[in-house]
Amino acid sequence: MTSRTAITTLDVEALRRARPRSTLVRVSVLALLALVAYAWLGGDIQVEDLFSPRRRENLERFVTTDVVPFALRGTDWNAAQYLEYARGLALDRGFSGLGSTLAISVLAIVLAACGALSLAFLAARNVATPTPFGDRVLRDSGVRSRAWNALAVVVRAALILLRAIPEYIWAFLLLAMLGTSAWPAVLALAIHNAGILGKLGAETVENLDPRPLSALRAAGGSRAQIAWLGALPLAANRFLLYFFYRFETCVREATVLGMLGVVSLGYWIQDSRAKQYYDEMVVFVALGAALVLAADLASAIVRRALRRAQ
């Protein structure tokens, strides 16, 4: 450019032509657009049915009758009376449901973190080698190298499998095997989140600055020492950020898993749904939303503090 003001259309055109382009991105965008068009036009989704007279009647009955507490039906809307009703439900079942929902998610995320912590290092390509952070020249390409590589691949595949299956399906399967207790919900959340935290942890370890770890290696540190005393402290903040991020989702999911029959808030949601007591159901759903909100807030505060400490 010759002067600050003389940006000609030619320059802009040249810049436009020189922009980075990727076939993968283009094909992906087209594929996604086609998928969305197919989803809406393929006949699987009947949106207009939502506005049919029958649906409208349903909705009207739901809003004007079903969600109104049984004792208050036919009376004028009174906020104080409604709050009194909601308070009664919360004290009766809601708060104990909230307590177990929270406990399920806390225990699950702690177990998930323990599992992920041990698997993350095995899945990290810079730790799972015969000479972690060692000299590249010394890296042998023989059996040991291939064995470590195979281990990392197996751990990665296991992590993918753990997280590919949703919590709800894990809980559904585990419930049939373990019977009713809190464990199916706890384990389902722990398994799925171990898969996610393990992957995120492995990526964190792979992206660590290798220099301090190579120094440990050069000073004669073993693999376990490098991982435990070198990589873990360096990655700790990131690990904790991910931990609290997944804790938020755990609280959301723990509410819902109760619908399968574990006593969390979801149990009471499903219970009132089955009885068609929609007045109760709406209160429990709102309680669940309040819990999610509280957990989000707590987690956001901790994460901000962690980020500042970084």
Partner: peptide, 23 residues
């Protein structure tokens, strides 16, 4: 703050089973 399955349950109660509700 309301989970997608709980939205689904609410829509099921309000509309009945409908694919638009799932979306």
């Amino acid at each position: 703050s309301v989970h997608e399955l709980l939205w689904a349950v609410l829509f099921l109660a309000a509309f009945g089973l409908n694919t638009g509700g799932a979306v």
